[in-house]
């Protein structure tokens, strides 16, 4: 039974956590693409920046003597999200809006977002160096263990408090987004603009407002994703830079512009990565007496070093097989 527990810990829990991160990031990417029609490369760095904002706020809260049972980094998240939203709006106003106004092509905005990436990276490294930081210097990282001796396992199912919180945050964010997009006037206007921007304008929809709302949501989600990721692992300047590519893969696999597709794509890629590097021999071992062949020591689909490439391989396959994504994405 320990093998099963190992599988649950290594594949199901890790995959859910990774999928949550990817989904949160991919929603932002896909919303921005739906409304503004460009691939926002700086999204990963907006995540990192959100993580650092929360980190600074957490330091401040600790120095004020605020102690709670939940991680301080999580406690300050709402405030961090508000700050991140203002920065996101500022980035749009300072860098993207002038280009849009000039009627620049989406690809110009894509390149501009590389510029924004470099600026954010540079600033973060300027202030924080390239060291890595932990949210848990002043408080313990709680670990949950579910005893499984009932089914004959000696090892428990294990996950950490940040991982649990991350899944909760993702579920709440997805539900909130769903209700926003399907029930609220502004949310519907957002879908309308993603569907047909010209007609949205003709209908009298305040497109500038929709653009702002998009940045509000994307900025807030990026901050949440970055903070939750930093709580789970640790905070580094290149925290999300490496993760932005699987996030884009998730958004494309789900169909750019499709929020639900982004969520599905995020979990698909998250699970694919964890399953690809899982050593399946472990699951076969209990049956070693009945199997007609000897079980190899290592039965992982790809070696662990290639974990990140799994996302790209999936991406390439999807692009070849169905270029607009599994859920038909926007194509302009």
């Amino acid at each position: 039974m320990n093998e099963l527990i190992f599988f649950i810990n290594k594949v199901l829990i890790s995959g859910t956590v990774l999928g949550s991160i990817y989904a949160l990031g991919a929603i932002g990417v896909t919303l921005i693409f739906g409304i503004l029609r460009f691939a926002h490369f700086a999204h990963g760095d907006m995540m990192t920046m959100g993580g650092f904002i929360a980190f600074l706020l957490a330091l401040l809260a600790t120095s004020l003597g605020i102690v709670t049972p939940i991680p301080t980094g999580f406690l300050v998240l709402p405030l961090a999200m508000v700050i991140a939203v203002f920065i996101a709006l500022g980035i749009d106003k300072g860098f993207y809006a002038p280009l849009r106004k000039r009627g620049a092509r989406p690809v110009t905005l894509l390149i501009a977002s590389i510029g924004v990436t470099l600026i954010i990276q540079g600033l973060i490294r300027l202030f924080f160096g390239s060291a890595s930081y932990s949210f848990f210097d002043n408080e313990p990282k709680e670990i949950f263990q579910i005893d499984m001796s009932a089914i004959g396992a000696t090892r428990p199912i294990t996950f950490t408090e940040p991982q649990l919180l991350m899944v909760i945050v993702t579920v709440v964010a997805v539900l909130a987004l769903h209700f926003f997009l399907t029930r609220s006037r502004l949310g519907k206007a957002m879908r309308a603009m993603a569907d047909n921007a010209d007609l949205a304008q003709v209908s009298g929809i305040n497109t500038a407002l929709v653009v702002r709302v998009t940045w509000v949501i994307a900025g807030a989600l990026a901050c949440a994703a970055g903070t939750m990721l930093a709580l789970d692992v640790s905070l580094k300047p290149d925290l999300a830079f490496n993760i932005v590519l699987p996030i884009f893969a998730a958004a494309i696999v789900g169909g750019l512009g499709q929020s639900y597709g982004a969520i599905a794509g995020g979990f698909l890629i998250g699970f694919a990565e964890t399953m690809a590097v899982f050593n399946w021999a472990i699951l076969l071992r209990p049956f070693k007496d009945v199997l007609p062949f000897e079980i190899p020591a290592d039965l992982a689909i790809v070696p662990t070093e290639y974990k990140l490439t799994v996302a790209f391989v999936i991406l390439v396959i999807v692009l070849l097989w169905r270029p607009t994504g599994i859920f038909k994405g926007a194509s302009s």
Binding site: F95, P98, L99, R102, A104, T108, I111, A112, I114, G115, V116, T117, L118, I119, I120, Q121, G122, L123, R125, L126, G129, S130
Partner: peptide, 27 residues
């Protein structure tokens, strides 16, 4: 503190500023 390591990070920042300025004012 750490002026040397910080200064070397400015390269990335400057690169970002240059590209955004170029896109805006000399596309």
């Amino acid at each position: 503190p750490d002026i040397e390591s910080r200064a070397s990070q400015m390269r990335v920042f400057v690169l970002g500023i240059v590209i955004t300025l170029a896109l805006r004012y000399a596309p």
